[in-house]
Write a protein that binds this DNA or RNA. Sequence first.
DNA 1: GTCTATATATTGATAGAC
DNA 2: GTCTATCAATATATAGAC
Lengths: 214, 214
Amino acid sequence: MNPPIDTRVRLVEAARDLFLLQGYNATGIAQILRQSGANSGSLYHFFPTKEDLLIAVLEWYRDNIWEGLLQPVFTRIDDPIERVFGVLDGYRQMLMMLEFEQGCPIGNLSLELANSHPKARELMVLNFENWKAAIGQCITAARGRLPESIEPQRLATLVLCVMEGAVMLARSYRHIAPFDEAVLQLREYFDRLIAEGTRWGGPQRASLGRIVSN
Amino acid sequence: MNPPIDTRVRLVEAARDLFLLQGYNATGIAQILRQSGANSGSLYHFFPTKEDLLIAVLEWYRDNIWEGLLQPVFTRIDDPIERVFGVLDGYRQMLMMLEFEQGCPIGNLSLELANSHPKARELMVLNFENWKAAIGQCITAARGRLPESIEPQRLATLVLCVMEGAVMLARSYRHIAPFDEAVLQLREYFDRLIAEGTRWGGPQRASLGRIVSN
DNA sequence: GTCTATATATTGATAGAC
DNA sequence: GTCTATCAATATATAGAC
């Protein structure tokens, strides 16, 4: 006997959206109940504490990184380097569309809760790792175009840091300029790496790639 | 008739430390009163609302960026590029020393309050701008060693983003590794810029410094 | 400017009927 | 699994004597 729309799902989605917009501590249980249309009893039936609801939200992000974040970009773009910047452009579009009121869901909760909520912290790490792995795979796929000394995972960490920092600045400034500056400078770095990587051994190696540079 | 230690100062310092450790919403007025040894009446005499206290904390950071953050590094290090990485190393030391419980004070508050506290948001922007200007001046001072196409302010924005992202990751992972990876990769970029900048026109121009080519 | 006592609203969480 | 009513604690803020 399923209810028309699963109450648990509605609770997680309401909490997810409110945490993203307001943060964890600024979001009250009452507000989550109002937005989800559920009652106190239902919420505490599924989630004994507010922190359990937070965990469920972070698990939702963990389970939806592919179809929510990566897949829309990866189906549209084939070139692995452009995929990296395509993901960054996804954050740009979100910032602009929602007028800088929403940024990276994980980064948002990270600084607020890293000290006080160990289990949530571990799930944030997992989400960061998954994000980094996806970007790292793109960079690995483009390895033939980059200098051999470049470590894909390390470069992916840099990309993640730039993204998180750029989102933070854009939300603070309520302006896309600092985001664009940072990404443009990151692009300058990638261009430089590619210019160096193709200097000797050059275009032939790149064209080996995954069957002609995609 | 001055009190032995200024109450207002003690309140701002207590709030500053607690906001840094716990965030804004997770810090109660009662806790600030306990830590500062002040009474409710005193606090509300100086700061009509909690937000006014937040403003004072952000003004404190604004007024102390030089002696608290930059000056210790700049007196120890002369080379402008090394000053940039010296500042980053300052954050590294804080992370390690305080076991990842404290990061960038502004970044900390930024994601939590950008949507809800407009006046605080403006002061955060000012703090970011001051930070960026200091790093931008270092980069400008080293311009002779960098490719002419490099815009110091834009590169400074990238450095700020990397720092904020790297602090976020280190605090989430409770480990310095992601911070070090990001900064190492940023260093790789700078090395590459310097190698390119000195390729032709070279060391001579660099040694002229602020006469030619700035 | 400082003190104590307190107001009012909201917090996360619970009880128990259905 | 859902509902209503409600708990105890804490939140920010205030009142008024000193």
